[in-house]
């Protein structure tokens, strides 16, 4: 038998669908933006859009917006460590002779 008294936040169909629409729009934008050449900014633009999409998925589809602060902190730390792992490797790669 199970009982629980924790609060559960239900994301409405409407909000879910809005997020879905936004994700589709952002996909269209990133495909469109790829048709133009911004030089080295190409990667920056693509990654910014991707990160915006990822943020929407994490916050709303994965309910992070409604979770306890602990969850937000540890998600942040994880991505921070990933960024460090990739970023610090470039102390080597960017300065190779």
């Amino acid at each position: 038998m199970t009982e629980h008294h924790e609060e559960h936040h239900t994301v409405t169909y409407k909000l879910n669908s809005i997020i879905w629409g936004l994700l589709l729009v952002l996909t269209a934008i990133t495909v469109a933006a790829a048709q133009f050449d911004f030089g080295f900014l190409n990667v920056v633009v693509a990654m910014t859009i991707a990160t915006t999409k990822a943020g929407l998925v994490i916050l709303f589809f994965m309910h992070l917006k409604y979770e306890k602060p602990l969850f937000k902190i540890i998600v942040f730390i994880t991505f921070l460590l990933l960024a460090i792992a990739i970023g610090f490797t470039f102390f080597d790669l960017a300065y190779r002779n």
Binding site: T27, T30, V31, A33, A34, A46, M47, A50, K53, A54
Partner: peptide
């Protein structure tokens, strides 16, 4: 979401 731009759109 990351794989798509990295492989298909980087061109």
């Amino acid at each position: 979401i990351y794989l798509f731009p990295l492989f298909y759109l980087i061109a």
